[in-house]
């Protein structure tokens, strides 16, 4: 309450509002709906090469014929992902590709499938393709809640970390300590400030996702905001903790990266955490960003109710409480 001014004044923080919009615009460019991309492959010149090219006529495969040496060079430099070396009738055809590249594996499967079918293979079971593009199951539906979580983390931590260190280098922290101000109030003001910004930030991002990508929030928006609030408190606490000792902005910047990087990668912002080994899962699950992302996703996409996101909520609340208490204890008041 005493900190009305603190909440209101530092107008530098207004860029916090600009950031999510910029992020969303960048996303909009990256995730326009486009047709699936064709894979580029090359066929080594020789007998049978032209026949192969004919058999590969498909919108999903871009194939050309090249001399042996040139073809190998294109494969090495990555211009094409697969090289087909044709063989005489009955002998084995060679596919050359890098197994660790997903596109290369995909190209191999596509090409082999096309060639075998063209050459008379019969599939024992008929199949029917059903293409999923309905809202709720697309990559963007997965990505958007993750980005909201990421944005909450970085704006909370950077916003608070920089502001505190800035106040400290200006000796304003010391000046405030020389008044009867309660120290907990001072730290709390930052946390509250974040909570206020959040009320604008989160709806803005979801609104953008809805308007541009049709990402719908299936679950309760109130629950979503509640989770976002808890997440914001947790990251505000972490931001305070990181900034509690740092004397200058370089130090705090380094520490921020140290804390955020593991979550950036491991917390399922861009891809699911299930890509990490099982042994790491329990660890990843208690990271605040993982908890926040899982919770946001569950509510947004699966319409989860309060009981299903209770674990995430508890993880976030514990982070918030522990980091705030630690920050209060460690804070350098000069």
């Amino acid at each position: 309450m005493r900190f009305r001014l603190f909440l209101r004044e530092p107008s530098a923080v207004f860029w916090t509002f600009g950031f999510p919009i910029l992020l969303s615009i960048a996303l909009g460019i990256a995730f326009r709906n486009r047709p699936p991309e064709a894979v580029s492959i090359v066929v080594q010149a020789g007998p049978g090469a032209d026949a192969i090219l004919r058999e590969l006529a498909s919108p999903l495969i871009k194939a050309r014929v090249q001399d042996g040496e040139a073809a190998r060079r294109e494969l090495r430099s990555g211009k094409v992902v697969l090289l087909i070396i044709p063989a005489a009738e009955g002998a084995a055809r060679t596919y050359r590709y890098d197994e660790t590249r997903p596109e290369a594996r995909m190209a191999r499967a596509l090409v082999d499938d096309a060639l075998q079918t063209a050459e008379g293979r019969l599939d024992p079971t008929p199949v029917r393709d059903e293409r999923v593009t309905e809202p709720g199951a697309r990559y963007i539906d997965f990505l958007l809640p993750g980005l909201v979580g990421l944005n909450l983390m970085s704006s909370s931590m950077w916003g608070i970390g920089y502001m505190i260190v800035d106040l400290r280098t200006k000796k304003l922290v010391k000046r405030l300590v020389a008044t009867p101000m309660r120290r907990g109030d001072f730290l709390l003001s930052f946390v509250l400030m974040r909570a206020v910004f959040l009320l604008v930030e989160v709806p803005l991002l979801f609104a953008f996702g809805w308007v541009v990508f049709g990402v719908r929030v299936v679950g309760s928006p109130l629950l979503l905001m509640g989770l976002a609030m808890l997440g914001s408190l947790a990251f505000a606490g972490l931001g305070l903790l990181v900034a509690s000792r740092a004397r200058n902005t370089q130090t705090v910047g380094g520490l921020m990266n140290l804390v955020m990087m593991p979550m950036f990668i491991g917390s399922g912002v861009f891809f699911s955490t299930s890509n990490f080994p099982d042994g790491m899962q329990p660890l990843l699950r208690v990271l605040p960003l993982t908890a926040l992302n899982d919770g946001l996703r569950a509510v947004t996409n699966a319409g989860a109710g309060p009981s299903q996101v209770a674990f995430a909520a508890v993880v976030l609340a514990v982070w918030a409480a522990v980091s705030f208490a630690a920050a209060l204890r460690l804070f350098r008041w000069r």
Binding site: E9, P10, S11, A12, K170, K171, L172, K174, A178, T179
Partner: peptide, 11 residues
């Protein structure tokens, strides 16, 4: 208390 150097927030 008035310290030797204190900078209040610019805005």
């Amino acid at each position: 208390v008035s310290l030797q150097e204190t900078h209040l927030p610019e805005r």
